[in-house]
Structure formats: structure tokens, C-alpha cells
Design a protein around this nucleic acid. Structure first.
Lengths: 226, 226
DNA sequence: ATTATCTATAGATCTATAGATAATGC
DNA sequence: ATTATCTATAGATCTATAGATAATGC
């Protein structure tokens, strides 16, 4: 659990301070990410985080000042990556689709890109997904999304608007509300679907979700036409 | 804020102990429900609850033993009502639809009944909705749903199964995963949709959701057919 | 005589800071 | 000489309990 630092060819090279710093920061963020995703901001103590990393609590203050700052840092670390990827995917789709973008095409770019990132990114990215899902469900969390996530969402909406001429913005935004709810409920991986389905579905099975979500949601949008 | 106790014809009737007890319990649960919905289990202190009610912290222990118990009591108080209503609505629909239930019909019974209850129930029921949305997003919360909510959900699934012959259980459960995600994201009322849409949509506007959600989700299910 | 509510307080825990020690940097 | 990490500790806060007081019940 703490042997992940090895990977270099040399057998015990002295770590430079910059490396030490970087490694400590990463380990702290990983631990905090996991714990916050499970128990939320107030459900995690700095001691929990420190213990998980195997360091002293005060080191958290040394690196991150205070708890809120650590929380924000967890959010920030990967927000740019996921939003950047999705924005790129949307722009790519927009360029390819030319004058006739489809709802399903836009949703594939928006949703699949994200699901792939988390699923292929391994445990740590899955933790981040759960972290975001949990955060997005809170009043303060919903505000944190604004800076990084809003541009991507508004880009999606702008494509949907062209794909669905005649639709009101109200329809588009409520439709998005459904889409993001479905996505967040997936990313949270609470295990509810596993128990509910008696083992037929698994919370971790993002490929199963990816196979269905864009198609499902696209049909939903189309059905809003009166 | 504490004058809601009046409503009787007499102008200052001595409250019986049973009444006192009932009123205190209600006020405590209302306050706890609101605070937990905003900040979650760990984000609320017993002192917060006591202050909101205007009583002393120890009274919370007198009535509810400990914090976890209070939390559970908040969950329990209204769970039976909402689940009972939805179950009745599903059974009624099932009887009416006879041999040919539709996805949209089942979803109207399942979703609209709930949205109506919260919207027409006023502020306190809206708080409960947000409480459930928040709770459902956590690992422990997802387990709490089991007792009360699973039977209703499984009833819905059983109708969907008849409405969608040839569908795998995997399709049905993942579809439900999307439906409940969309619903929970609505019930949470974090204000995100308001800011995102620049004021076009309002988190509190359940009628706007009710107008769209069943139709939207029904079309989604139908699109899963390969 | 019983039940509702408050006072006083224990004991644990939590965030945060000041300052010491140990490691790397030049 | 600088940076990473630990020791010691302050001060606040939180849950919970024991026991006192005030109100209703018969």
C-alpha cells in the first residue's frame, strides 16, 4: 500500500526534495480523495487522512494549510483533466458533425469520454468520480462545479440546441438535469444497484453503463418534443 | 418560527404531556431534517439542531438517545408515507392497465406520485426530499433505502418487465439506475440548474420536472431495445 | 407521581500552531 | 541553508451522562 513509490530502475535512489514533495502531495490527495468520497467533508478528519497515508497530521497543514484547502485541492487536481477531455471531445464531434449534429452523438462525446476516463484510469480515478458525485449533491459542492464544469456543460447544451431546433431552453436544461443525475448516480457507486438487482448489475460496471446511457438519454430528449 | 403550535380554538390551553411530547418530537425532527438535508450526518451537530428548535441539547438525547438514532428517525418518519403512496399508485396502475401496461404509465405512477407529494406537502416535505436525495448518495444511505424503498422499486421493475418483454434484467435495472439518478438530482435542489441555466430553470420547480420526467425516461427505456 | 426540560460536567476528539529534529541542497 | 517531518500542546467543540428543577397527571 505504500510500496507504490518504487518503479525506478535504481534500487534505492535518494529522493530529491522536489520528488519527496510531489510524492507526499499525491499520497495525501489520494487518501483524502478516497475518504471524502466515502464520508464527505465533515465525515473525514485530518487524522483519518494522515493515518491512511502513514504520516503525521501536522504535515497536512504544512502542505495544505487547512482542511477546506485540502478538500478543494482534491477537487481541483483532476477537474481540469476531465473537463478538458470532454471539451475536446465535444469540439471534435461538433467539427465532424458539421451542420447536422445529433443528440446521441453529442451525448456520446459528453458521457462516454468521462466514463472511459474513470474506468480506464483505475482505482484512483474511480475514487475521484465518486468524490465528484458526492460533492455535486451538496449545496456547496454544486457551487464548486461552476468554474470547471459549467463551460463543458454549456458547450453540450449549445450542440443540443442545434440538434433540437424548436426546443426551449427549459427543455434542454431539464433534460440535462436528468442526464447528469443519471451519470452522478452511476459515478457514486454506492452498491445500491448491486443489492437491488440481486447481483445482476454491479456498481463498478461502467462499460455496462456506457453501452446504454447515451442512447437512453438521447431518446429521452427526442421524446420531449410536443 | 415557533408559533406554529397554535391552531386550536382555545387561546392558551394547557398542553397535555402527550401533546407536548408530540410537538417536541415533530419540531426536533423538522429541524434535524432540514439541517441534515443541507449538511449531511457529520455536518450537523446536535447543538445545531437544538439551537434551531430553541431547546437544550440534552433534550435530544432524552427523546432520541443518540445522534444516529435521530438521523434514522428523520429517515423513518416519512419513508412509510412516500413508499406506501407509490406502491398504491403502482398497484392501481397495474390493475387498470390489465394485460398491457406501458413503461410510461408505470413511470408516471412511480415518479409523479412522489413529486406531487413533495411539492404539495410544502416546505417540510421538500426538505425530506432533499434529505433522501442526499442520503441516497452515500454508501450507508444506500443501505438505509433497502427496507422501505426496495419493495416499491421492485414493483416498478416487475411492471416494466411485463411492459418490455424480451428485455434483460440488466437493461431494466440500469434503466432504473438512470431514472432514480434523475429523480434524486431533482429532489436535491442544490440550485445548480438555476445558476447553470442562468435563471431559466428553478430547482424548486417540480411541476416542470413532472411534466417531462416520465415521458423522457420511458423513451429512454424503449431505446434500449436492440 | 410521572414526564419534560435544564444545569453541570466528563471525556473524547478535532483543527490548528509553535517550535524542534531530520533529511536534502550547494 | 532550506525543506520535510515530527513533538507538544492550545483551544474549541462535540457527544453523552448524571442529576436537579419545573411542569402536568390523578
Amino acid at each position: 500500500m505504500s510500496a507504490m513509490l518504487e518503479g525506478s530502475t535504481e534500487k534505492r535512489r535518494r529522493r530529491s526534495k522536489a520528488e519527496q514533495r510531489a510524492e507526499s502531495l499525491e499520497q495525501i490527495l489520494d487518501a483524502a480523495e478516497y475518504l471524502f468520497s466515502k464520508n464527505g467533508f465533515y465525515g473525514v478528519t485530518l487524522r483519518d487522512v494522515a493515518e491512511r497515508v502513514g504520516i503525521h497530521t501536522t504535515l497536512l497543514h504544512y502542505y495544505f494549510e487547512d482542511k477546506r484547502n485540502l478538500f478543494d485541492a482534491v477537487f481541483e487536481r483532476r477537474a481540469g483533466v476531465t473537463c478538458g477531455r470532454r471539451m475536446a471531445a465535444l469540439e471534435k464531434y461538433e467539427a465532424e458533425a458539421g451542420d447536422h449534429p445529433t443528440v446521441e452523438g453529442a451525448l456520446h462525446a459528453f458521457l462516454d469520454t468521462d466514463l472511459d476516463l474513470y474506468f480506464e484510469g483505475g482505482e484512483l480515478w474511480m475514487n475521484y468520480a465518486a468524490f465528484v458525485a458526492r460533492v455535486s449533491n451538496t449545496p456547496e459542492g454544486a457551487m464548486m462545479m461552476k468554474v470547471h464544469f459549467d463551460p463543458v456543460v454549456l458547450k453540450l447544451i449549445s450542440i443540443l440546441r442545434r440538434a433540437l431546433p424548436g426546443y426551449s431552453d427549459e427543455d434542454l436544461f431539464w433534460g440535462y438535469n436528468f442526464v447528469t443525475g443519471a451519470l452522478m448516480n452511476t459515478l457514486g457507486r454506492t452498491g445500491r444497484i448491486d443489492r437491488l438487482s440481486g447481483g445482476v448489475c454491479h456498481s463498478d460496471d461502467f462499460p455496462a453503463v456506457k453501452k446504454r446511457i447515451a442512447k437512453f438519454m438521447a431518446a429521452g430528449f427526442l421524446a420531449l418534443k410536443e
